[in-house]
């Protein structure tokens, strides 16, 4: 089991943070283009899912899985979106993403008056903390099978 990469988007679609760990391929497009496509895909997926749902959904879109990887999605009511790609053996990580938001994003970005909220995060401390957080996850393993 492993983590490939992690995106944090704000409510306007700006990618606040991107980190990758055991990612093995690249899409062949620039990172900036990738952020845009990723956000666009999530946005469309989410709005269409809402339309398909027979009843009003509170959480909506949680994750999707292909034969090779799994994408986990967590969105706060304020529109912060945390997206994590892992391999398919990883189960439900909703609580993990929620913890990343409440203990790392809120602690080191929102409570840091020097961090502005709607542009990519510059704080080295935040980057260190999120890196340590992901590396410390039980399903994080550097040995990719």
């Amino acid at each position: 089991m492993t983590v490939y990469n992690l995106y944090v988007f704000d409510r306007h679609g700006t990618c606040l943070y991107y980190g990758e760990w055991n990612r093995k391929n690249t899409t062949g497009i620039s990172l900036k283009g990738e952020f845009k496509l990723m956000y666009g895909m999530l946005f469309s997926l989410k709005s269409f899912i809402k339309k398909l749902s027979p009843t009003d959904v509170k959480e909506g879109f949680l994750s999707y899985q292909t034969s090779k990887y799994k994408l986990h999605y967590y969105e706060t009511p304020t529109g912060i979106k945390i997206v994590m790609n892992t391999d398919i053996a990883v189960g439900n990580v909703r609580d993990v993403l929620q913890r990343a938001y409440s203990t790392i994003y809120v602690d080191f970005v929102v409570r840091n008056p020097l961090c502005s909220l709607d542009e990519p995060i510059q704080s080295e401390l935040f980057k260190q903390k999120i890196d340590a957080f992901v590396r410390g996850l039980p399903f994080f393993s550097a040995r990719v099978t």
């Binding site: 706060t76 009511p77 304020t78 929620q98 938001y101 409440s102 929102v110 409570r111």
Partner: peptide
């Protein structure tokens, strides 16, 4: 900012 703090503390949807 306080709204993010609030959501993190209380976990209301």
């Amino acid at each position: 900012r306080i709204i993010e703090d609030f959501l993190a503390r209380t976990n209301v949807g």
